Simulated scan of single mutants.
Amino acid sequence: MANVTDKTEVRSSGPRESGMNSFNLAGAGRLLARQGILVAFGVFMIGFTLANERFLDPDNIMGVIRSSAILGVMALGVTFVVISGNLDLSVGSMMSFATIVVLDLHDKIGPALAIPGMYAMVLCLGAFIGFLVGYLKLNSLIVTLGMLSAIHGLTLTYSGGKNMDIADKEGTWFSVFGQSDVLGIPVPILLFALVASVLGILLAKTPFGRKVYAVGGNGTAATFSGIRRARVVFTCYLLSAFCVATAGLLQASRSLGSQNTVGQGLELEVLAAVILGGASLLGGSGTIFKTVIGVLILGFIQNGLLLVGLQFYAQYVVTWVIIILAVWLDIAAKRGKLWSPIA
């Protein structure tokens, strides 16, 4: 009887162990699908630290965050657009326009009037895009892709194809936004943190934020629930334009001069940062806090690549790889599996 019992125990324990192993593997797969980009980031951080001891130097860390502030402010606004189920590929050319306009108006009417004047012009562009996507219900990818070229042409027309520089760089207070520190913390970082805090509260704690999630999650259901879908989308593009104008202000104040293509290509980096932060391209998910994390991930990866000796133009390839990885993990998180069950 003892032998029979022993055999029964052995036989019964086999399926249990197999089930536990399958459960652990499935759980690990789901965890990797949801947090895989953080795992990859941890691997990058360890590798960069081993490759160059300057990577974790406090000055380097502060420099990375400061240089990421402009991209980060833009990503905060795009987060609202993506959560609402849309895209905004015009932010790069719009940032170029904002930078050129505020520099030009600085010498013509002074910085006190140049800043609100620039904000008004950029917000008009954002309102136009919001009207086309929100009220006319045009495809956001097509609209913003077209506006990317249109705004770039507008920038070249406004500037006459020339770069902009402030005439009196020594006698202007305009540099305070991009070059000054407060208690040892650069102003761009403080502005980035301020905008992130305000928009984070707006998205997470207000009825408008809940409407953004509802519209992105299921626009038809949101409409039948009494939510004015067009107004929500319109407002999201206004917020995106406001953040782009703020980024243009930081860029212009930082250098007190700019090329008319300064924002070219930033739309892809902004989108990469937003998706890295967990916002879904399908809409309905994402947070401001995670977008900030995504911006920092992208910034530290690019900095680490430079410190290990990789040429700056190779970052474009790395950014592409990161976007593909982020989209793959995003879709994997939605279906709960890293690999599609359909071959």
Rank of each mutant, 00 (worst) to 15 (best):
G153Y: 02
A167I: 14
G160Q: 07
I151G: 02
S159R: 02
A150C: 08
S175T: 11
I166K: 06
I166R: 02
F174T: 05
G161M: 08
V176W: 10
T155H: 00
G146E: 04
S149C: 07
F177M: 09
G171V: 02
I151M: 03
T157Y: 14
I151Q: 00
G161P: 04
G160S: 09
G171Q: 08
I166D: 01
N163E: 15
E170N: 12
A150E: 02
K169R: 14
F177Q: 04
G160E: 04
W173F: 13
G160C: 09
A167G: 05
Y158K: 03
Y158P: 03
L148P: 02
G153C: 06
K169C: 07
Y158R: 09
S149F: 13
W173T: 13
T155Q: 01
A167H: 08
S149K: 09
F177E: 01
D165C: 02
M147I: 10
G171N: 14
D165F: 13
N163C: 05
I166G: 01
S159G: 07
G161L: 06
A150V: 12
A150Q: 00
K169F: 01
A150F: 08
F174V: 08
M147V: 04
M164I: 15
D165I: 12
L148D: 10
T172D: 00
G146W: 03
M147C: 14
T172R: 07
G171D: 08
Y158A: 07
M164Y: 03
S175F: 06
D168Q: 11
I151D: 00
G160Y: 09
E170Q: 11
Y158G: 04
G146R: 03
G146F: 01
F174D: 01
I151A: 04
H152F: 13
M164G: 05
G161I: 03
S149N: 12
D165V: 12
G146I: 04
D165M: 10
A150G: 07
S175P: 02
I151P: 00
M164P: 05
D165A: 13
A150N: 00
F177R: 07
S149P: 06
G153T: 00
D168G: 05
G160K: 06
L156S: 10
V176K: 10
L148H: 09
L156M: 11
W173I: 09
F174K: 07
A167E: 09
K162D: 14
K169L: 06
T172G: 07
V176A: 15
K169D: 05
L154F: 15
I166P: 01
L154N: 00
D168S: 13
G160A: 13
T157Q: 12
S175A: 14
T172F: 03
L154T: 08
S149Q: 12
H152V: 02
S149W: 09
I151H: 00
S149M: 10
E170D: 11
S149Y: 11
M147T: 10
Y158N: 02
S175L: 10
S159Q: 10
